[in-house]
Design a protein around this nucleic acid. Sequence first.
DNA 1: ACGTCGCACTTGAAGCGTCAAGCATGAGTG
DNA 2: CACTCATGCTTGACGCTTCAAGTGCGACGT
Lengths: 181, 181
Amino acid sequence: MEHPQEPRWLTVEEMESWLALITVLIKLPAALDGQLLRDAGISHFEYQVLAGLSMTPERTMRMSDLAMISEGSLSRLSHVVNRLEKRGWVRRTPDPDDGRYTLAILTGEGWEKVVETAPGHVEAVRGFVFDPLTKAQIRQLRDIGRRITHAIDPGDSCLERHPATARPEPDPDPTPNREPS
Amino acid sequence: MEHPQEPRWLTVEEMESWLALITVLIKLPAALDGQLLRDAGISHFEYQVLAGLSMTPERTMRMSDLAMISEGSLSRLSHVVNRLEKRGWVRRTPDPDDGRYTLAILTGEGWEKVVETAPGHVEAVRGFVFDPLTKAQIRQLRDIGRRITHAIDPGDSCLERHPATARPEPDPDPTPNREPS
DNA sequence: ACGTCGCACTTGAAGCGTCAAGCATGAGTG
DNA sequence: CACTCATGCTTGACGCTTCAAGTGCGACGT
């Protein structure tokens, strides 16, 4: 099309890196999904949603914000929250301040689910990603990831979002069920 | 469960890396799929299958080998090859040497499809991954990727597989339609 | 006040991947 | 040669994601 002549094929070094990257792209999500599905019966995306809610002081978030931080479409989120609602972990209410928004709220059971699931998930992330890397590689990974993300979507403000592996509720408020059991 | 006390939560540095990684995990496949779907009407996995076949001298491979190099389950491959067969890019024959195997064969049209799709795909990979990285980072990425892959699946012999961004048919044989148009 | 518009969200249908059978071929064993 | 077994692949049902409407609420203009 607009590639006049022989395109710039990958060098051997680039091909090795590409193969390594694509393998991670396929296997790491599968491994993370597998661990969560086996140990907690939820998908990685469902976990991200629950964990995202668990990290706000009120355990509440607008659907659109929740879609942002969990990196999924609004439609996908809506379906997933439907399932989570049926399982009793989340409930929805129209935003009293503005009826166009919908607030997703983590229930007590949902909170317990996150608390009992988080340690195993963090352990899996450590096992797959951080334990095999040196401290220098961890920094390199961050820089490489940011550059790639920026190349895909230059307007991505990925720097100030919370990842879903933080301790739930880092800033506790005086609600009764802070720790389960 | 077997996590007695407070688990080893991620440090700030690790969390930054984790967020960067997970963003790449979600956005890069979407970006690659998007480019191929827009420009060629095929998914990344379908491209990997076609490209895998295009790189063997006979443009032929056993289904199980093809599943290996394209990193998908045999079942998934079977469904995908069904679709590719309906589109006229691949055909299947029982292996004459051993009827249990099935050979997937790239047709002339399939070959043309790869040839016209490859340059744009390589260009996209360059744009998303290699252009924004330094040469040192490209090496770092390879090492990091291999370590993570090894942690997930220690028995993975990912080093001697061909990636799907190589030039099609690096070792040409005397078939008529080597270059389309 | 009323109509129009935009935005947040939901819904239903279609497509794709996974899982658990099922089928066919060839190898091993008596 | 029969019988069994292992292997490679296929198939169909189910679940999840996507895409394209559709709904409901609030803002803005007149």
